[in-house]
């Protein structure tokens, strides 16, 4: 894309069609990545507030929790704006947006069937393949939009939605990053080897992501889910190790051994069975990464 000339007669009124020079683009991308990393770290800290905030003993956990519930939606909006920035200027913005909308709708339907089928989360397959096919930015926004749309469509709105949005978005973005990395590593391999290594890596990533996702979503709500009087409760002001041991028991019992395992299995089986077809289909869309 090096067509820089604009016709003189209309040049004054028309925005230049070409993209910014490579150096500026790289700088812009770096700035976006840094901004994005900062927002994500802040959000991660909010997820982990029971382990991060050294609450003075005796203080109830409600204050930091309410604070976190107010901060995370704001962070989500900021993250979406940051991720949006690069889309609006790109030449295929409309196709990007349309693809985002359609895959989010597909994910919403998948979530509906998931709730009927007891944790068989097909949404992870769409997220991981979408992120791998169209890049981390797409994966991130796909996670955000899918959760947003399904919350709106099925009426499950509550304080947990921004947390779910972030966790899901990270899964999609991570898939994009993993795919970029593995494609860079296997640059010299044959097409067949590249495809195999990509799917193998994505499958492993799917397992890790499924468990981390469950643990993350447990972490911020755990103090409220169990209440203050049990032996696995959050103890404000206690050592991190103690709270961590309580949390580990909680997450093992409630989700790691059950929901998360079902989710991990579904994701891996789904990726193996329909991943290649999904990926081949999606890459037919002429949407650059």
């Amino acid at each position: 894309m090096t067509r820089l000339q604009t016709p003189t007669d209309v040049a004054t009124t028309i925005p230049p069609p070409v993209h910014a020079p490579a150096r500026d683009r790289r700088r812009g991308r770096l700035a976006t990545a840094l901004l994005f990393a900062t927002v994500s770290l802040a959000a991660l800290a909010c997820f982990a507030w029971p382990l991060v905030i050294p609450a003075s003993s005796g203080q109830s956990p409600v204050v930091p929790a309410v604070l976190v519930c107010l901060v995370v939606p704001v962070l989500a909006v900021v993250a979406v704006i940051v991720a949006d920035r690069g889309v609006v200027g790109s030449p295929n913005a409309a196709t990007f947006v349309a693809m985002l909308g359609l895959l989010a709708a597909a994910g919403t339907l998948a979530r509906l069937f998931a709730s009927a089928a007891g944790g068989v989360e097909a949404i992870f397959i769409i997220l991981i393949i979408g992120g791998a096919a169209f890049g981390p930015r797409f994966g991130f926004l796909l996670g955000m939009v899918t959760i947003g749309v399904s919350a709106l469509a099925w009426g499950m709105v509550g304080p947990w939605v921004p947390f779910q949005m972030f966790a899901t978005a990270w899964v999609g973005a991570g898939a994009g990053l993993v795919s970029l990395a593995i494609r860079r590593v296997t640059r010299r391999a044959t097409a067949r080897q590249r495809r195999w290594s990509e799917f193998a890596t994505l499958s492993v990533y799917g397992i890790v992501a499924a468990y981390l996702y469950g643990a993350l979503l447990n972490l911020w709500f755990w103090p409220f889910a169990v209440g203050g009087e049990t032996s696995i409760s959050y103890e404000a002001g206690a050592a991190v190790g103690l709270n961590l041991s309580h949390f580990v028991v909680y997450t093992l019992v409630t989700s790691t051994l059950t929901w998360d395992t079902v989710r991990a299995a579904t994701t891996v089986v789904g990726l193996i069975v329909m991943g290649p077809a999904l990926m081949a289909g999606l890459r037919r869309a002429k949407l650059g990464r």
Binding site: V88, G101, L102, A105, A106, L141, V145
Partner: peptide, 23 residues
């Protein structure tokens, strides 16, 4: 609102019934 993500939400909500019919 000029936002890619909000537009995507609108598209998703619009195609939701259609996607079911397509299936």
């Amino acid at each position: 609102g000029g936002s890619a993500s909000l537009a995507a939400v609108l598209i998703a909500l619009a195609v939701l019934p259609e996607l079911r019919l397509t299936g």
